[in-house]
């Protein structure tokens, strides 16, 4: 039966030449995806073996940023999807606001002590909008072993002007969290209060590329690891931006790393167009600050409305 895998390889090859659209085109494989009749078990097994063969022979493509669509779709997203579906019960709204094919910049709030919200947004965009989002991450991630290369394989890259411009020019969907560590590491008492939006570098990139900015509000991430304190001296020694204290960490050890099962809502808002500006205007600080404020306002409003809509973070308890 080796012909099966051999005959399947060429057809797979055709799909792999344009990996991103291939990832986009295929419907998201749900966890309870009962594909066809029972007779297809053999087919699925053959498919799995063909995948295994490609992986072992190194016969797949990654893009220049290190994005490996096959690994991302078939392995990495499968691993985090249960969190999205069952643990946080994420509901995604306003998917129509995400362009189906063209480039856009998704700007979201950042929270939760660990950047779980980024992963959940990635699953949301993959499963609901059928787009591979290219997130821009802090350089700390790329210095760390394991995390750095996994992050590249799942489509993320370094938050730098060059990378952002390049991805947007290629018509990719780029995701940024302009609050950065200020947002993700803020104390629980400041939950759902947007922090400062850096220097607005993301606006500059969007204006230069003429791509729309899609404001995105994520509600629920604030409650997963309520940060009530910080080992700031130890964090400085370790070169980390913060070392959180939560009601469960470090007191419960590794158990404290289990995120609390809050209820999540993710909403993509009305896109803010930037194509009426000249790409040269990207150097105008006034325009950049105004646009940055506009995006920030939009996200804060979305956040407040979404929080009301969600109600308690841990239904049915409180």
């Amino acid at each position: 039966m080796s012909e099966i895998s051999a005959s399947e390889t060429p057809s797979e090859e055709g799909a792999r030449i344009i990996p991103i659209s291939a990832a986009r085109g295929t419907p998201p494989p749900g966890p309870s995806d009962a594909t066809g009749p029972a007779g297809s078990v053999d087919e699925r097994l053959a498919e799995l073996l063909a995948l295994l063969r490609r992986r072992i022979a190194g016969d797949y493509e990654v893009d220049e940023f290190g994005f490996d669509p096959e690994l991302n779709d078939k392995v990495l997203l499968e691993l985090i999807r249960p969190l999205y579906r069952h643990w946080f019960r994420v509901e995604t709204l306003g998917v129509d606001n995400v362009p189906a094919e063209t480039g856009a910049l998704v700007v979201a709030n950042h929270s939760g002590t660990l950047p779980v919200d980024a992963l959940m947004m990635q699953v949301a965009l993959h499963d609901e909008a059928h787009r591979a989002v290219r997130l821009l991450g802090a350089d700390l991630v790329y210095q760390l072993p394991v995390l750095g290369h996994l992050s590249r394989k799942t489509g993320h890259t370094l938050a730098s002007r060059e990378d952002a411009d390049r991805l947007l020019r290629k018509g990719e969907l780029v995701g940024v969290f302009p609050e950065g560590f200020k947002g993700v590491g803020k104390p629980f008492s400041e939950r759902y209060k947007l922090q400062r939006f850096g220097r607005g570098g993301f606006v500059t990139s969007a204006v230069r590329a003429g791509t729309p900015i899609v404001p995105c509000a994520i509600v629920g991430a604030e409650e997963i690891y309520p940060k009530i304190g910080d080992f700031s001296t130890l964090a400085r020694l370790l070169g980390l931006p913060y070392l959180p204290i939560t009601p469960f960490f470090p007191w419960l050890g590794p158990l404290g790393l289990i995120p609390l099962p809050s209820k999540w809502l993710i909403e993509f808002g009305e896109p803010i167009r930037t194509d009426q500006f000249d790409p040269e205007d990207a150097d105008d600080p006034m325009l950049v600050f105004n646009l940055t404020d506009q995006v920030r306002e939009a996200i804060q409003q979305q956040l407040d409305a979404l929080r009301l809509r969600r109600g308690p973070a841990f239904p049915p308890f409180f």
């Binding site: 039966m1 080796s2 099966i4 895998s5 053959a46 073996l49 063969r53 072992i56 190194g58 016969d59």
Partner: peptide, 18 residues
Amino acid sequence: GADRTAALVDWLSGLATR
């Protein structure tokens, strides 16, 4: 080349699907 590992997988898949 990866011929040997690929052949191993082919052989395994032959076993599994037969």
